[in-house]
Nucleic acid binder design. Structure first.
Lengths: 223, 223
DNA sequence: CTACAACCTTGTAGTCCCTGAATTTATTCT
DNA sequence: AGAATAAATTCAGGGACTACAAGGTTGTAG
C-alpha cells in the first residue's frame, strides 16, 4: 500500500467474495503483500502503460524486493490480469451450490451474473482500470498465461461434476465453459469502452443469445 | 531446413490453402524463411521442450540470424502457435464466399470444417506435433500473444459484414466467433490426445451442440 | 520464554527474450 | 549497369525470469 489515500479501505482489491477472518499472521501478511503487488501493478500500468513500468518498480511500490514479486506471480502479466486461486475456489463453490436440476448453461450463467453484480457497485474503478489495460494490450485479453487455462479447467470440472460427465472424455463441459468465459471476456471489455448499459444486462443478453443457439439478432440483414 | 530428410517436401508447412505462384523472388524467399523458422521451432521444441530451446538455436537451425527471427515473429511463442496473416486472409475470404442467406453460425461452421478437412490427410503429423506442444505448455493454448486476438477481430469483422452488423457496436459477431474458435481450440487438442475419431466429426458434433444452445448432452444426469 | 523447525524474504549472478540503430547484402526498377 | 528499395546482419543494451544460498519471521512445543 504505497502513497494511497485511505489505508483502511483495504478491501479495494479485485477479489469479490468475503474471506475467512481466521488466518494466522503469516497468511494475512501474504494476502496483504499479494494485494499490494496487484494494486501497484494495476495503478502504475494504468498510468504509464505496460512497457513504461518494470517489475522492479512494481515491487518497490509494494515495498518488497523484486525477487519476492516472483514468489507471488509467475509473470508480470499475471499480477495485472491473472486469476486468484481464491476466486477460482469461490466460483466453483458457487457453481456447486446451484440447484442440482438446473440446466448447466443456466447455472454457469447465474454464477457469472451474480459475480458481475457484486463487482459493479464497489470496485468498478479498479475493474475499469484493469479492463482499460487489457484493451490497450490485446495480448493480455486471452492470455494471463497459465491462470486463465487453469480457470477454464477448474470450471469445466465443476460443470462436469454437476451433470455427471467426465470433462476428460466428453468435450461438453469444456466447450460450455469456454463459450461462457468468452462472453464474460468480450462483454466486460465492451462495458469498459461504453459506460452506458450495466454489465449485468450486457451479459444477460449475450447468455440469452447463446442459450438460443446464437441466432442472427434482430438488426441483422436477412438476405 | 537443417538436417532433415526430404528437402523437397517443402510443402509440409502448417498453412493449408494454395498460394498464388506469381510472386517475386524476394517474396518467395520470405515465405521460405518464415516456413523454415516455424518448422525449426516446432521440431526443436517437440524434441526438447519449450524451455530447452532458445531463439538463438531456432534461428541457427533455420540458418538466419537471431535478429531476423524477430523480423518474422514478434515472439518465440508466435513461431510455434501464431496464426499466419495469410491464413487469416484465406479464412475471411472463405467466409465471404458462403451463400449470403446462410445463417452466420452455419457459415462459420462450414468454413472451420472445410479447413479441418484439408488439414487432416496431408499435414496431420505437423499439426499433431504442434498440438502436443500446446498440451505440454498450457499457456500456449489461449495465448499465442496478439495473433489470436487479431484473428478473432478479423473473423468478427467478416461475420459482421455478412449480417450487416458493426462489430464495434453489436457484440453478436465477436461472441459467435469466440465461441466457434473455442470449439476449434478445444476439440483440436482433444483430437490430438485420442487419435480415435476424425477431427471433422468432433467439430461437427460440437457445432451442432452450440447451434442448439448447448443443451445437456444425452449422457448427462438429469437430476 | 526459549529452542527449534518451517517458511518467507532477500541478494547475487546469470540466461534468455526482445528492441533500436547503424551497416551490409540482396533484389527490383529504370 | 546503376540507382532505389527492402531485407539480413551486427552490435549494444534493457528487462523478465530463475537457481542458489544466505538471513529473518512466524509457528510450535517443551
Amino acid at each position: 500500500m504505497t502513497t494511497q489515500a485511505g489505508p483502511d479501505r483495504a478491501t479495494m482489491e479485485p477479489s469479490v467474495g468475503a474471506r475467512p477472518a481466521e488466518l494466522g499472521l503469516r497468511e494475512r501478511k501474504k494476502l496483504r503483500t499479494r494485494r499490494a503487488l496487484r494494486m501497484a501493478a494495476i495503478r502504475l500500468v494504468a498510468e504509464r502503460g505496460l512497457d513504461g513500468v518494470s517489475v522492479d518498480e512494481i515491487a518497490a511500490a509494494a515495498e518488497v524486493s523484486t525477487r519476492t514479486f516472483f514468489n507471488y506471480f509467475p509473470t508480470k502479466d499475471d499480477a495485472l490480469v491473472g486469476i486468484d486461486p481464491e476466486d477460482i475456489r469461490e466460483i466453483t463453490e458457487a457453481l456447486a451450490a446451484r440447484p442440482a436440476d438446473e440446466d448447466p448453461l443456466a447455472a454457469v450463467r447465474a454464477v457469472m451474473l451474480q459475480r458481475a453484480e457484486l463487482i459493479a457497485p464497489e470496485q468498478a474503478d479498479l475493474w475499469r482500470a484493469r479492463l482499460a489495460i487489457i484493451r490497450r494490450h490485446p495480448h493480455l485479453m486471452t492470455a494471463s498465461a497459465a491462470s486463465w487455462s487453469s480457470y477454464e479447467n477448474a470450471l469445466a470440472e465443476a460443470v462436469g461434476r454437476r451433470c455427471g460427465l467426465d470433462p476428460a472424455r466428453d468435450p461438453y463441459p469444456a466447450v460450455l465453459v469456454a463459450a461462457a468465459l468468452a462472453i464474460v471476456r468480450i462483454l466486460s471489455v465492451r462495458w469498459q469502452e461504453s459506460p452506458g448499459a450495466p454489465l449485468v444486462d450486457l451479459l444477460s443478453q449475450a447468455f440469452d443469445s447463446l442459450a438460443r443457439g446464437l441466432p442472427p439478432p434482430p438488426g441483422a440483414s436477412p438476405a
